[in-house]
């Protein structure tokens, strides 16, 4: 049913469940169209596997337009594949050549255990947010939105930090499996808004504490996260988080 003419060899990580031992398995695919997305190529593979009576490859995906953050494949040694600024689902086969061998692995980090094949457990991110990635304002408490003017530059900068989709590519690519980019993006978004000030120093302390408890590694500023982040989240956010953390620990008298 395929329409194209690319032939590919895939080496895909297969692992039955968290405890099982996994390994790379080779698959040959033919007649792949360059207009297909990478995940559509996986659909083709899975259709073939099912028809042959094999188990399809399990991978996370949902929106298929680069915004939900579900898709997460480590392709030829890079999270979300060879192109910058996109997610796995936005990668198209025209970025590969006929005859290529493509290695696909799951995100790897102690804090992101493999669930099955290419699917990992990223709930650590949710727990970090639950620890403080919010502004405590109950429904109904709000004043008129325009009572709080926010300079455009500041609002834009907060927005850029808020663009994070929680995909975990930063953790996946970091040689230390550090989650600093993700965590700092949320801290930085809220730290730049007037609404975020009341809890600013509590927030940074509790979120960093949770991040550490989850078993992510320590940042060594290699910058790989920024380079691989599909949403272009900047390292400036990490610096801002560090600043806030020192202020919280060494200047603020609040103890948490």
């Amino acid at each position: 049913m395929s329409t194209g003419n690319m032939n590919l060899t895939l080496k895909i990580w297969r692992q039955k469940n968290t405890k099982a031992k996994g390994g790379l398995v080779d698959y040959k695919l033919s007649e792949i169209s360059p207009d297909m997305s990478f995940l559509e190529m996986f659909d083709v593979l899975n259709e073939q596997l099912i028809s042959k009576g094999d188990e399809p490859v399990v991978f996370d995906h949902d929106c298929r337009e680069g915004i939900c953050g579900a898709c997460s494949m480590y392709i030829d040694g890079r999270p979300h594949g060879p192109k910058d600024g996109i997610t796995t689902c936005q990668l198209h086969m025209r970025s590969f050549k006929d005859g290529d061998t493509i290695v696909v692995e799951p995100w790897r980090a102690k804090a992101f255990p493999v669930i099955k094949d290419l699917t990992v457990d990223r709930s650590a991110f949710d727990r970090v947010i639950a620890a403080g990635g919010f502004i405590s304002v109950n429904t109904g408490n709000a004043q008129d939105a325009n009572n709080l003017p926010i300079p455009k530059v500041q609002a834009d900068s907060a927005f850029e930090a808020a663009a994070c989709i929680g995909c975990g590519a930063c953790v996946a690519t970091c040689k230390n499996a550090s989650a600093m980019l993700f965590v700092s993006a949320k801290i930085s978004q809220l730290a730049q808004l007037p609404q975020g000030q009341p809890e600013r120093y509590r927030r940074v302390q509790s979120m960093v504490a949770q991040m550490d408890a989850e078993g992510f590694g320590n940042c060594t500023n290699t910058g790989a996260c920024e380079a691989e982040c599909p949403k272009g989240i900047s390292l400036e956010n990490i610096a801002r988080m560090n600043r806030d953390f020192y202020s919280a620990k060494f200047v603020s008298e609040e103890d948490i």
């Binding site: 080496k11 030829d76 060879p82 980090a109 102690k110 040689k175 380079a227």
Partner: peptide
């Protein structure tokens, strides 16, 4: 300590990594 903790943060290594695509080798070899 950092080196060892950071290694422990990724118990299973990748089969293929392309670090050169996103960072300098020396930043990864401190």
């Amino acid at each position: 300590r950092l080196v060892f903790q950071n290694q422990a943060a990724r118990p299973v290594k990748y089969a293929v990594t392309n670090g050169a695509a996103n960072s300098k080798w020396y930043s990864r070899s401190m």
